[in-house]
């Protein structure tokens, strides 16, 4: 029955699109093999389309059409308009499809979603960034944003941990960052062979001599939950108050816009309220198993 009612009835306009879940076509403009299982993809929109601006720490929903949609944080430079950069680790079939896509591949993308890093909280403070594994990807836009405004905050201490030297992302850029005199980048791996002259050990091992003023510093953490928790606890041990720490959390995301319920974490819908949240608000929840 599709006849319009005579008296009462449909007044709202019928939306002419598939709603917030509708993706837009992008193509892979460039691809960089970061590690054995991780690539960075530069995505360009269809000709004539705009790329929405994003804030560091936000994510997009991506898919090679028909092969599964996944949430991937944006790892590009927020200052560069006209493209989205994503670093994808091939873990499941959907990410394998993305990671295997070559320049010219069609990608369905939508976003950006979520709450990013509170960059403005860094102004005037020392900044500690601790990232682990592919957790460096969502941190990269933050770093680029901070470095662009280097004069606006104090010391910058970055600790990046990975499994082995072969798992380090953004190697050329990392080398450049490590050469900077206005920031200290420490890179540590869990295990290495003799050809690695850098640090070996957990990121927490590098914290004791991180240089920051606990009374006036902020910390941004991204990595496996257990790593972030340990790092936050260690930072607290050094006197950095909880209120100065933010973490980026992960749960399954499907809709990205707070409708599907998959990414619940206690009171939060991580796609909507996160993925970046104040550690103060989640410290207790992170200790609850199976939440």
């Amino acid at each position: 029955m599709s006849t319009a009612p005579e008296i009462a009835g449909p007044v709202a306009p019928v939306p002419s699109h598939g709603g917030p879940l509708e993706p837009a076509p992008f193509t892979v403009r460039a691809r960089a093999q970061e590690t054995r299982d991780t690539v960075s993809l530069v995505l360009a929109p269809a000709p004539g389309s705009e790329v929405p601006a994003f804030r560091p720490g936000q994510f997009n929903m991506l898919s090679v059409p028909g092969r599964g949609e996944v949430a991937i944080s944006i790892s590009g430079d927020p200052g560069r308009a006209g493209e989205w950069v994503h670093t994808v680790r091939a873990l499941g079939l959907a990410t394998q499809a993305l990671a295997g896509s070559m320049p010219g591949t069609l990608i369905a993308a939508r976003g950006p979603y979520g709450q990013g890093w509170p960059v403005d909280r860094a102004w005037g403070k020392d900044v500690v960034i601790v990232a682990g594994g592919v957790g460096l990807a969502p941190v990269r836009p933050l770093l680029l944003e901070l470095l662009r405004h280097r004069a606006r905050f104090g010391r910058l201490e970055v600790i990046y941990g990975a499994r082995t030297p072969d798992d380090l992302l953004y190697a050329p850029e990392l080398a450049a960052w490590r050469g900077r005199t206005d920031a200290r980048f420490q890179v540590t791996v869990d295990a290495a062979g003799r050809d690695w002259y850098g640090d070996v050990g957990l990121v927490t091992q590098r914290l004791p001599d991180a240089r920051f003023d606990p009374a006036s510093a902020v910390a941004f953490l991204c990595g496996p939950e257990i790593m972030m928790r340990l790092t936050a606890e260690t930072l607290e041990g050094r006197g950095l108050p909880r209120e100065g720490i933010w973490v980026s959390l992960e749960r399954t995301m499907q809709c990205g816009v707070g409708l599907c319920g998959h990414c619940q974490f206690g009171p939060y819908l991580l796609c909507r309220d996160g993925p970046v949240l104040p550690y103060r608000d989640v410290a207790r929840l992170l200790r609850i198993r199976g939440l």
Binding site: D37, R89, L91, G132, G133, V134, G161, A162, R163, D167, D190, A191, G201, L202, T204, Q205, G223, P224, I226, M227, L230
Partner: peptide, 14 residues
């Protein structure tokens, strides 16, 4: 010892 445990746990593993 704590760090070693996490290294054994392979915290960044896929």
């Amino acid at each position: 010892l704590d760090a070693t445990r996490l290294q054994v746990f392979d915290v960044y593993r896929p």
